[in-house]
Design a protein around this nucleic acid. Structure first.
Length: 585
RNA sequence: GUUCCCGUAGUUCAAUGGAUAGAACAUCGGUCUCCGGAACCGAAAAUCUGGGUUCGAAUCCCGGCGGGAACGCCA
């Protein structure tokens, strides 16, 4: 069996396509649409005969029969049971002997690094504003972005992780004004509390500016000075940025999130003017009500709703920096694709940005990278509204993480009082943070989701602890046998899988590549979560019903192979989600 | 007002136009001379509403009802 059999879904698709081309009623437009089937009917299913028949006004059962006849005569498909069923599906079932060979071949060798080879993908995620603490609103971009990034990398893409900080906004005028007003020495601040202090100063500044126009004007002046590169203001701004990033880094360290570049909005400050000039010269942008805007005449909504790229006071905004940023990513990183991970409220903005980039790059004869907005819904509290503390403030990420870890610790101490304190703490950290991440990733990102400590740490159901527990049990088994589950892929059982649990688990393992493919297509990590949970459930049923220790060598070997493969997939899967795993918990 | 997203068991979520709508939690009932009980097995329980499209609709289209969001100088 060579390596293309790893991804059975794609392999079968290719085989069925090739076969169809020898039958005169099919043409090149035929797509077999192989899918993972409901286990009641088979392991895989040819779905495309129905579509093709509909488009070509043919009888689907008849076409299905023709394809089936050819398939049955095919040497390559001889290991599979096949039948025509329902309105025109072909069900495909994998024989136990095939499953055994497949498992021997690919255990520990699920390598997808050819899938995206040669692609350069810039991914823009996390991207908090400086001068503020990260709060719960920053959670999803970080978690979802990190997971997607890992999957793209795993599949061989050249991934460039860029943290596009909001570090050049108009908030700095007010903030600097307040800092000067209160005569704060920003260079001598306690790093622990600096961000809280900036937040307080900002609020103070807003209040002052509202009450007294002199302060408002002073703030405007400070902003202009900063933007012109005034020495003192620039140093203050830099100090704010440094203090901010120091606290962000602590969160990233805890969340195991890393970046290749941190090119915030300020990085593009000298490029925005030329963007505006260029777009105006190309007649893509026009002046309207004193601002420079882009309309998209052939778009239903954006013919009226403008994309603002320069405010009437002459200042640029985030439309401008985002344009300059795409240009930079194309020019310097040679990005084939740029992925933005932000919340769904920015969908209009990104649609307008993408349409504008397309017109701009086409006009300048620059290759247009594929631009994707990976958006997500809001984190909701118990009341079904955006999550807040009892006093109505947003929840700081730092506190959220601390609470997750301390809740996990309480459970670990209760369940495993004999472990050392050091081990308990380590487990609590992995479980607590894993639970937060998994709760977010396990549901469709485009829906809002309800945040609940009790549910994510319940240790039952589709949660990180359940998966981590399954992993810990497999490790315990290998420890008992004194063999390494990671290095030795030498188990070559001669006995076929025979119990219902063995077969069911082996069939689940076969689907792993198809799931990764699905995640890549839609950039929705919850497909992987659903799969991992189902795999862990299958494993637990298997492990409960089929003994391993003390069994005869044939049986021992085939069951160990399943354990080893399951472990490998669960660990790989969780790492792709950005979640650490444990050998003991 | 215009536009977008969403509405599935009591609850939290799944379901590429595909076969009998899957899970989990909670509820009720079981399993162990048990390789980690943070486990396993089982029961009951759902597509907001009215039309349409088709071999087939939770999914696509049109109209209601309900929730959320975006709509020019914040990002």
């Amino acid at each position: 069996m060579n390596s293309d059999w790893l991804d059975l879904k794609s392999k079968l698709n290719a085989i069925f396509y090739a076969l169809s081309q020898n039958i005169n009623v099919f043409d090149t437009s035929f797509d077999p649409e192989i899918r993972v089937a409901d286990p009641r009917f088979g392991d895989f299913q040819v779905n495309g005969v129905l579509d093709f028949s509909k488009k070509n006004k043919k009888n689907p059962r008849e076409l299905g029969q023709k394809l089936l006849d050819v398939a049955k005569a095919s040497e390559e498909l001889s290991p599979f049971g096949m039948e025509l069923s329902g309105p025109g599906f072909i069900n495909i079932r994998l024989a136990p002997d095939f499953l055994r060979k497949w498992a021997i071949q690919f255990c520990g060798r699920c390598d997808f690094s050819q899938w995206l080879r040669g692609k350069t993908i810039v991914i823009d995620y996390s991207s908090p504003n400086t001068a503020k603490q990260m709060h719960v609103g920053h959670l999803r971009s970080m978690i979802i972005g990190e997971s997607i990034q890992r999957m793209l990398r795993f599949c061989g893409a050249n991934v460039i992780r860029d943290n596009h900080l909001g570090d050049w906004g108009t908030q700095f005028g007010i903030l600097i004004m307040a800092i000067k007003h209160e005569k704060i020495d920003v260079f001598a601040m306690d790093p622990e509390t600096a961000l809280d202090e900036f937040e307080r100063l900002y609020k103070e500044g807003v209040t002052l500016a509202k009450e007294d126009e002199n302060y408002l004007n002073a703030a405007r002046k400070e902003l202009v000075l900063l933007q012109r590169g005034d020495g003192e203001n620039f140093k203050i701004w830099e100090a704010i940025g440094t203090a901010s990033y120091r606290t962000f880094e602590e969160i990233y360290r805890q969340m195991d999130v890393t970046f290749d570049h941190v090119l915030g909005e300020s990085f593009y400050r000298d490029r925005v003017d030329s963007v505006c000039e260029e777009l105006e010269a190309l007649k893509i942008a026009e002046k309207d009500r004193g601002a420079l805007v882009v309309f998209h005449r052939d778009h239903g909504r954006f013919r009226e709703q403008p994309f603002l790229i320069r405010k009437s006071d002459g200042a640029s905004n985030y439309g401008t920096t985002d344009l300059a940023t795409v240009r930079y990513r194309e020019e310097n990183f040679h990005a084939n694709e740029v992925i933005y991970v932000t919340d769904g409220r920015q969908r209009d903005h990104f649609q307008q940005l993408f349409l504008t980039v397309e017109r701009w790059f086409v006009a300048k004869n620059i290759p247009v990278p594929k631009l994707k907005h990976v958006w997500f819904g809001t984190v909701l509290g118990e009341d079904g509204r955006a999550i807040k503390t009892r006093s109505g403030k947003s929840i700081k990420l730092k506190q959220l993480i601390e609470e997750g870890v301390s809740r996990a610790l309480a459970i670990v101490v209760e369940k495993n009082p004999n472990l050392s304190e050091w081990e308990q703490k380590k487990i609590a950290r992995v479980v607590g943070i894993g639970a937060i991440k998994y709760a977010d990733l396990s549901q469709n990102r485009t829906n809002d989701y309800a945040f609940s400590w009790d549910r994510m740490l319940s240790f039952d159901g589709n949660t990180a602890p359940y998966l981590l527990y399954a992993i810990a049990r497999i490790h315990a088994l290998f420890r008992k046998l004194e063999i390494s589950p990671n290095r030795e892929y030498h188990l070559k059982p001669m006995a076929e899988f025979s119990t219902p649990e063995e077969l069911s688990l082996a069939r689940k393992l076969v689907n792993f590549p198809a799931v990764i493919g699905q995640v890549l297509d839609d950039l929705r990590p919850h497909y992987l979560c659903t799969y991992l949970f189902e795999l862990a459930s299958e494993f637990s049923s298997f492990y409960n019903a089929n003994r391993i220790l003390g069994e005869a060598e044939d049986i021992l070997k085939k069951r160990l192979l399943l354990c080893q493969f399951t472990l490998h997939v669960l660990e790989t899967g969780l790492h792709l989600l950005g979640i650490e795993t444990l050998e003991k918990m």
